[in-house]
């Protein structure tokens, strides 16, 4: 077993039943080299303070539950390691730009609504049944959308996006990336429906290309690209309708 050291973890605490505003509490946590920030939090919950509240599940960076801010950087706590912060103390806070429900737990309902708003499913050109057999799709066609399909909905990108923080009507990075994922799928014919979301003020036009969303994405989804490419599409859509006012309604 590697050597045990002690790190100070400062956690934002907020109890909706007791507190008017959040405060901070610091814990001394013994850790070994392979311990993640999540395991540090679990140590606190198991041994020091059972009331510290946070979400987690898969502990292997695929379920998207455990996002939080460590020293103002949005991260997945399960794949960030205490050794990388030691000897400095670390400050753990809930994801920025979301309302705090309790301690490190944020209210994600707004995001879920946004996800639902982008027609996030395949809209086939004509109805299919399993009896029709699978569609053909070449590896290259898959490449067109597979990157955007890697999103685990961990919300780090929303925590990185000041535009969402300033105005949470903005549809935001992950939802718009998912929109781009379905639009780029060769099996999909739902682009027209989704264009309405793209074209809206709170669609791609809420983005000013800060770009941090793509940098913090643990799955390299690159929402900034998804959004800004759709600005071009939206612009084309805006002007082309004047050129061809008829025949686009079909």
């Amino acid at each position: 077993m590697s050597q045990t050291r002690t790190i100070m973890i400062e956690c934002l605490r907020y109890d909706p039943e007791q507190d008017q505003a959040p405060h901070y509490r610091t814990y001394e946590v013994p850790f070994t080299d392979e311990m993640s920030v999540l395991e540090g939090l679990q140590y606190i919950k198991d041994h020091l303070d059972g009331s510290l509240t946070f979400r987690w599940s898969c502990r292997m960076a695929i379920c998207g539950s455990c996002g939080c801010m460590v020293n103002h950087q949005p991260i997945l706590s399960c794949q960030s390691f205490l050794r990388d912060y030691y000897p400095a103390r670390i400050r753990v806070e809930p994801l920025e730009h979301f309302p705090i429900v309790k301690d490190l737990v944020i209210d994600q309902s707004d995001f879920l609504g946004k996800l639902e708003s982008v027609t996030p499913y395949l809209v086939p050109a004509q109805p299919l049944t399993p009896e029709d057999g699978p569609n053909l799709q070449t590896p290259r066609q898959i490449e067109d959308y597979l990157g955007y399909a890697q999103c685990i909905n961990c919300l780090l990108c929303y925590a990185a996006c000041p535009q969402y923080g300033l105005n949470n009507a903005f549809t935001g990075p992950a939802a718009l990336a998912l929109l781009a994922r379905y639009n780029a799928d060769s099996r999909d014919a739902g682009q027209k429906t989704r264009m309405e979301v793209v074209n809206a003020e709170e669609g791609v036009w809420g983005c000013t290309l800060v770009g941090l969303c793509s940098e913090v994405c643990p799955k390299h989804v690159d929402p900034a690209r998804a959004i800004n490419r759709n600005k071009i599409n939206s612009t084309q859509d805006y002007f082309l309708r004047f050129l061809a006012p008829f025949g686009r309604g079909s």
Partner: peptide, 12 residues
């Protein structure tokens, strides 16, 4: 129906 943004004009 969401309102279409006129941002494309100034954005261009």
């Amino acid at each position: 129906m969401r309102a279409r943004s006129h941002e494309p004009i100034v954005w261009s």
